[in-house]
Amino acid sequence: MSFWDFLLWILWIYLVITCVWIFIWIFIDIFRDHTLSGWGKAGWVILLIVLPFLGAIIYLIARGRSMTERRMQETQAAAQANADYIRSVAAAPSPTAEIESAQRLLASGAISQSEFDALKAKALAS
């Protein structure tokens, strides 16, 4: 096997992996699309099975823009959910929660009464 044969095999493997990846993304998009009816999904799947390359090209031409828009909406929704989660976790605790926490520490003996009074005064001041 020569060096050029090796490079040709690498090219073919790359093309096969790329084609499989494109088909997987198209199938995922077909089944995630809520605007497409069941018959429409079935039609696209049949087209992709019977004529895979032609079906993939037709799908990307016909529905490529909506495919991108759905992906962008999913990404924005995930980013918004992440931001909401971070805000909820990073929010400053309420004075009541701080006093309850200090009360538990006092009851467990981890802090003294004077330390509890200092924590309570600090919580009420904020």
Rank of each mutant, 00 (worst) to 15 (best):
V45N: 03
A77I: 10
S88W: 05
Q73F: 01
A42N: 08
W12Q: 06
F53V: 02
R104I: 14
Q113S: 06
I111E: 14
V50C: 01
L48I: 07
A42L: 12
E98Q: 09
Y59D: 02
F3I: 06
I10H: 00
Q73C: 04
D5Y: 05
H34I: 05
S37G: 04
F116C: 02
I99T: 09
G55S: 08
S101H: 12
I22G: 03
A121C: 03
I61C: 05
V16F: 15
C19M: 13
D33S: 10
I17W: 13
I61M: 12
L119T: 03
L7I: 09
A91W: 04
W12S: 05
S112Y: 08
F116V: 04
W4A: 13
H34G: 04
P95M: 08
V20A: 10
A90Q: 14
F31Y: 09
G38L: 02
I99S: 09
I58P: 00
E69Y: 10
W39C: 01
A107E: 10
R63L: 04
R71N: 06
S66Y: 13
N82Q: 12
L36Q: 13
S101P: 00
F27W: 12
Q80E: 13
A110C: 03
E115F: 12
A78F: 14
A125E: 12
S112K: 08
L7K: 13
A110T: 05
L8M: 07
R63Y: 11
L8R: 08
A56C: 04
W39A: 07
I13V: 14
I24S: 04
R104S: 09
S126V: 05
W12F: 10
M72R: 09
A118G: 10
L7E: 12
G55C: 01
R32P: 01
A110P: 00
F53G: 01
L51F: 15
D117H: 11
A110L: 11
L106P: 00
W21I: 02
L51A: 09
I49K: 03
L124M: 06
R71W: 15
K122L: 11
A110I: 14
E74D: 08
I17K: 08
I26Q: 03
Y85E: 05
M67W: 15
G43E: 01
Q103T: 14
I10Y: 13
L124F: 06
L47V: 08
L48K: 02
T68E: 13
N82A: 14
A118P: 01
